Computed example of a mutant assay.
Amino acid sequence: MAKEIEVGGEFQAKDYHDPPPALLADAQELTQWSFYRAIIAEFIATLLFLYITVLTVIGYNSQVDPAKGGDDCDGVGILGIAWAFGGMIFILVYCTAGISGKF
């Protein structure tokens, strides 16, 4: 499936070839440190994401609990929980993209 470019009303073949598609699973990748570094980075990122976001939700629930002396105006609120989730996603993608990504 060759891609063609239209120049001046006529089609010309492109001057490069697309590389063949990469395999989904490659046994040689298991021997490289970058593979394990990416796994470790993704694990730590997921752990931090869950830790921060779950603590934000638990903290909010305990701050607004009337049995503990809180009221509805205490805590970070729903918007604060949303900011915690969005901020953690941004930080973790920014920090791990160079390790686990291919860009």
Rank of each mutant, 00 (worst) to 15 (best):
M1N: 13
A2R: 11
E4H: 15
I5F: 10
I5Q: 13
I5P: 02
G8Y: 10
E10K: 10
F11Y: 11
F11T: 14
Q12K: 12
Q12W: 06
A13W: 14
A13S: 15
K14Y: 13
Y16D: 10
Y16T: 14
H17L: 13
P19A: 13
P20S: 12
P20D: 10
A22V: 11
A22W: 12
A22S: 12
L23V: 15
L23E: 13
L23Y: 09
L24E: 14
L24I: 12
A25F: 15
A27W: 15
A27I: 14
Q28D: 15
E29F: 14
L30E: 14
T31F: 15
Q32F: 15
W33Q: 13
Y36C: 06
A38M: 05
E42A: 09
F43A: 11
F43K: 07
I44R: 03
I44M: 08
T46K: 08
L47I: 07
L50M: 03
L50F: 07
I52D: 00
V54K: 00
V54W: 06
T56R: 00
T56D: 00
V57P: 01
I58W: 02
G59L: 03
Y60D: 01
Y60N: 00
N61L: 09
S62E: 11
Q63F: 06
V64T: 11
V64W: 05
P66D: 09
A67G: 13
A67Q: 09
K68D: 11
K68E: 13
K68V: 06
G70K: 07
G70D: 03
D71T: 09
D71I: 04
C73A: 06
V76K: 02
V76H: 04
V76A: 04
V76D: 00
G77K: 02
G77D: 01
G77V: 05
I78V: 07
L79M: 05
L79D: 00
I81C: 02
A82Q: 01
A84H: 01
G86A: 01
G86Q: 04
M88C: 04
I89D: 05
L92T: 10
L92W: 09
Y94H: 07
T96E: 08
A97W: 07
A97M: 08
G98P: 07
I99W: 09
I99P: 09
S100N: 05
S100C: 07
G101N: 05
K102R: 06
F103T: 06
F103M: 08
F103S: 04
